[in-house]
Design a protein around this nucleic acid. Structure first.
Length: 188
DNA sequence: GACGGGATCCGG
DNA sequence: CGGATCCCGTCG
């Protein structure tokens, strides 16, 4: 079932664990690709690691947008990172998707590639699903070709909570969550 | 106008 | 552990 805006109208640290086990759906050229979210991180205005911590700028403006929209940015000149905006309009707050696992590789990928590593990491999953800054600010819904679906009814995986990765500030906040038994998690 | 750092990834 | 590589925020 499609995750609607109301799902995202909560603090990022409440939404982030609830997104584990949900599915990202990407539609390209009429084909749908799906990936189960296995690792997330939360960021918000109270947190010095958050891009919107200081002020709203051209680069980060979409993290201040409506809950249920996308915040996509370029990092290290090479990779994109995909976030889902949470909480409320004009408050900067989002969940970074750090890893997904998919069964069917997109057609643009080498079929001999190991599918279970293809979405292991925030930059890699954006490559896998062709997520770039063209999608920055969009509403996550089928008519934009990128959306989220809720967990299956029998979801029962164990969720772990720990500190975030790759940041220099706010390193002690336990705002990373992952599914324990999944292969694509960055570090456990 | 220039400078430099970044929520990453890969190879050695 | 270093390099790739681009955008843009910050400072002068």
């Amino acid at each position: 079932m499609l995750l609607e805006q109301s799902f995202f109208e909560r603090p990022a640290d409440a939404v982030a664990p609830d997104l584990l086990g949900c599915t990202i759906v990407r539609r390209i050229d009429g084909e749908e690709y799906r990936g189960v979210i296995v690792e997330t991180e939360a960021y918000d205005a109270t947190d010095p690691a958050c891009h919107g911590y200081r002020r709203k700028t051209q680069r980060n403006q979409s993290i201040f947008g409506e809950p249920g929209t996308a915040y996509v940015y370029l990092i290290y000149g090479t990779y994109h990172c995909f976030n889902i905006v949470t909480d409320r309009q004009d408050f900067c707050s989002a969940v970074l998707i750090r890893a997904i696992e998919c069964e069917k590789l997109p057609i643009w990928r080498n079929p001999t590639e190991k599918a279970h590593r293809a979405g292991a990491g925030p930059g890699k999953l954006c490559q896998l699903f062709k997520i770039d800054r063209q999608l920055d600010g969009i509403t996550l819904a089928p008519n934009f070709g990128l959306w989220l679906e809720s967990r299956s009814a029998n979801f029962a995986e164990e969720i772990y909570q720990t500190t975030r990765i790759g940041i220099t500030q706010g390193v002690d906040l336990p705002w990373r969550w992952y599914l324990r038994d999944r292969k694509s998690v960055s570090r456990k």
